[in-house]
Amino acid sequence: MSIRLWIDDREVLAEPGERILEVAQRQGISIPTLCHHPALPVLGACRVCLVEVQQGKRREITTACNTLVQEGMRVATDTAEVRGHRAMNLELLRARAPEAPAVRELATQLGVARSRFRPPAQNPLPNCILCELCVRACAHLGHHALAAVGRGDKKRIGLPHNRPAEACVGCGSCLSVCPTRCILLKETATTRTIWGQTFELVRCKSCGAPVMTEAQRAHAIRTKQLPEDHDDTCELCKQSAASQRLASVVW
C-alpha cells in the first residue's frame, strides 16, 4: 500500500520503507547532500540534507536521507530556517575541509563565503569530512579494510593500527565515492600507492592500459572463483572485442 505525502506542497506517492531523500530525488526535487550514496547504507552524518517535516502536531528539522516517509507527512525542503541550519553545518564543514570543492560550492550557494570557525584540533586527513562513505564502500565491496576510528572530536578514518592492511587491495573505491576527494592516490605506469601501500598494476594484455591492481584481481578471483586469466583486459578492449564478436555473427 502506497504512502501519500507532500513535498514542497506537491502530493507524492511513496512505498513504505522509503526515505524522504530518495522520494524527493525521484520527483526531481533536489536536496543537497554530501554523505549519501544510493548504493550504500544510510548514515546521516553530514547534516546537510535538512528539511522541515510536519507530522501531525510534531514539527521538526531533520535529515531527509534517513527519515522514513509516513502517511500524511508534509515536507518543506527550502524554508529560511532549513537554509540557515544547512548553512551553519556547511560553515562547520568548511572549517574542517577548506579546500574541498564540493563543500566550497555548496557553502557558497548558501551564502557561506568563509567560515567563522577555526580548523578542528584533530584533523589528520586534511579535507576529510568524516562522512564514512569510503568506509561504507570498502565494507560493501567485501574488503572491510577501512575503519571509522575513535569518537567525538577525535574521530578519524584510517586503517587498523595505522599501518598498511592486508585487507586493502588498492581498488580506490574509497576515493571514487569520497565527496571531498581527500584520499591520496598516486599512480605511476606500473604502480598505485594508496593508504601508504604500493600495489602493482595489472596492465591490459591487448592495449597495455592499467586495469586494476594485482591484489584486487587476486581478491576477485579468490572470492568469486573466477578463472586465473580474469580481468587481464581493460574495459575498452573488452568492449571492442565484444563488438568484433558481434560483427562476426552478423550475416
Partner: peptide, 10 residues
C-alpha cells in the same frame, strides 16, 4: 574484520 574490531576498540 580487523577494521571493525579496531573501530570498536577505539
Amino acid at each position: 574484520s580487523s577494521a571493525e574490531v579496531y573501530g570498536v576498540a577505539t
